[in-house]
Simulated scan of single mutants.
Amino acid sequence: MKHDDQTRSLVTEVVPEAFPWVRFLPREDVQAFVVELVDALEGAEALCNPAPVAQVITSWRHTAEVHADPELLAVLQRDGDDFGAVARSGGSGRVSPKRGDPVAPPAVGGEWEIRFSTAEAVKGWHELEAAARGNLRKAWETMRTDPGPGPGKPTSRHHQLKGGLAHGTHQGRSLPRWQLEVTGAGRVWYLFDEPRRTVWGQHAGVGHPKQAD
C-alpha cells in the first residue's frame, strides 16, 4: 500500500514537474513510465551506474514526442502494407517508381529485408536521402544487419518505443516498433518482423517530431 501511495504521488506531483513532456502521454503510459523509472533508479543505485535511468527517460521522451505529433501518430497507428523494398540509397518499390531508381540488393546470410509499409515512409526516406545520404546509408546498414534487440542496445539513438507505441500493426500482425536516429533531427520508425526477418519502415522524417518540452 505504501508503494502504491508513493507511485500515485509521483504520477500526480513529482513526475509532471520534473518531466513536463509526460503531458503528451496517455494516462496509462504515464503510470508505466513511473513504474519503470522507479525500477531503473533502484537498479542504478545498486550498480552505481546512472546509464539505465537515462535510457528509460530518453525512450519515454521519444515516445511522448510521437504522441505530440498527431500526423506522425496517425501514420504509426495505421495497419501497414507492402510498398516495396528499400534500396541502400533510397529507391522505392511500387510507389511511383522511376526509370533509374536503385534496386535493393537481396538479403544474404543473416541480413534482414527492409521494406516500406506506408507511402509516407517512401516519401520521408527520399527526403532523408537528399538531406543526409551518408547517415542514411549507415542507418540502412544497421536495419539490414542489427535492427532489433541485442548486445549494446537499447541506446539513445536506437531503441524500441514505449507504452502503447511499443508495438504496431502490419497486415494484421502486431510487431515491435523501433526508432532509429539518422541525424540530430532525422528519424526512421520501423516494425521488427522477426518471423519473416523483415524490417517494415513505417515513417521517416528529416525534421524532428514536434518537441515535447
Rank of each mutant, 00 (worst) to 15 (best):
H3Q: 14
D4E: 14
A18N: 12
P20E: 08
W21F: 10
P26E: 02
R27Q: 14
E28G: 08
A32C: 00
V34W: 02
E36N: 07
L37H: 08
L37E: 05
A40D: 07
A40M: 06
L41A: 00
E42Q: 09
G43E: 14
A44C: 02
A44T: 01
E45T: 01
C48D: 15
P50S: 13
A51P: 04
A51S: 14
A54N: 07
S59M: 13
S59E: 09
R61S: 05
H67L: 03
A68N: 15
D69M: 01
L72E: 00
V75A: 00
L76R: 02
L76I: 04
D79Y: 08
D79E: 11
D82W: 12
D82R: 11
F83M: 13
G84D: 10
A85N: 08
A87F: 03
R88W: 10
G91H: 03
G91Q: 07
G93N: 05
R94M: 12
S96T: 08
P97S: 04
K98G: 07
D101V: 08
V103W: 09
P105Q: 09
G109M: 08
G110A: 14
G110K: 11
E111I: 01
T118E: 04
V122K: 03
V122E: 06
G124R: 01
G124M: 11
G124K: 05
W125T: 12
H126E: 15
L128N: 05
L128V: 14
A130G: 12
A130T: 13
A130P: 06
A132Q: 13
G134M: 13
N135C: 12
E141A: 13
M143L: 15
G148H: 05
P149S: 13
G150H: 06
G150F: 10
G152A: 04
K153T: 11
R157C: 04
H159E: 02
H159F: 07
Q160W: 04
G163M: 06
H170E: 08
H170D: 04
P176V: 07
W178Q: 02
E181D: 12
E181N: 09
G184N: 12
G184C: 10
A185Q: 15
V188K: 00
E194V: 06
W200T: 10
W200M: 06
H203I: 01
H203W: 10
G205C: 13
V206H: 01
Q211R: 15
D213N: 15
